[in-house]
Amino acid sequence: MAVLLDRIASSFASKRALIGAMVFEFSIVFVGVTAAFGMESFRRDREEAAYRSGIIAALIPTLDYVLLHNRDFETEVEAKLAAFDAAIARREQPALPMFRERDSERPPVRIWDSVVATGAARALEPDLLFRLSVFYNRQDSFGERYVRYAAYTEERILTLGSDRAAIYDGSGTLRPAYSAYVDRLRDLVVAHRDLAVQARTLRAELQKRGQIGR
Score class of each variant (00 low, 15 high):
R16I: 06
I19D: 00
I19N: 02
G20F: 08
A21P: 03
M22E: 05
V23M: 13
V23D: 01
E25L: 13
S27A: 13
I28L: 14
V31I: 15
G32Y: 08
T34N: 03
A35H: 01
A35K: 00
A35E: 00
F37Y: 13
F37I: 10
R43L: 09
R44Q: 14
D45I: 08
D45Q: 14
A50F: 05
Y51E: 14
Y51V: 07
S53L: 14
S53F: 12
G54M: 08
I55K: 02
A57K: 14
A57G: 11
A57H: 15
A58D: 10
A58I: 06
L59H: 00
L59V: 01
L63Y: 00
L63M: 04
D64W: 04
Y65S: 15
Y65R: 14
L67I: 07
H69N: 11
H69V: 11
H69F: 14
N70V: 05
N70D: 13
F73R: 05
F73D: 05
E76M: 08
E76I: 11
E78T: 05
E78C: 04
A79K: 09
A79C: 03
A79Q: 07
A79N: 03
K80H: 04
L81Y: 01
F84H: 03
D85V: 01
A86K: 11
A87W: 00
A89Q: 02
A95L: 06
L96V: 01
P97V: 01
P97N: 06
M98Y: 12
F99K: 01
R100T: 13
R102G: 10
D103H: 10
S104L: 10
E105G: 15
R106C: 09
P108V: 07
R110K: 14
R110W: 10
W112G: 04
W112T: 09
D113I: 11
S114C: 10
V115A: 05
V116E: 09
A117W: 11
T118R: 15
A120Q: 12
A120F: 05
A121C: 06
A121T: 11
A123E: 05
L124Y: 02
E125K: 13
P126N: 01
D127W: 09
D127E: 15
L128I: 07
L129E: 04
L129V: 00
F130L: 12
F130R: 13
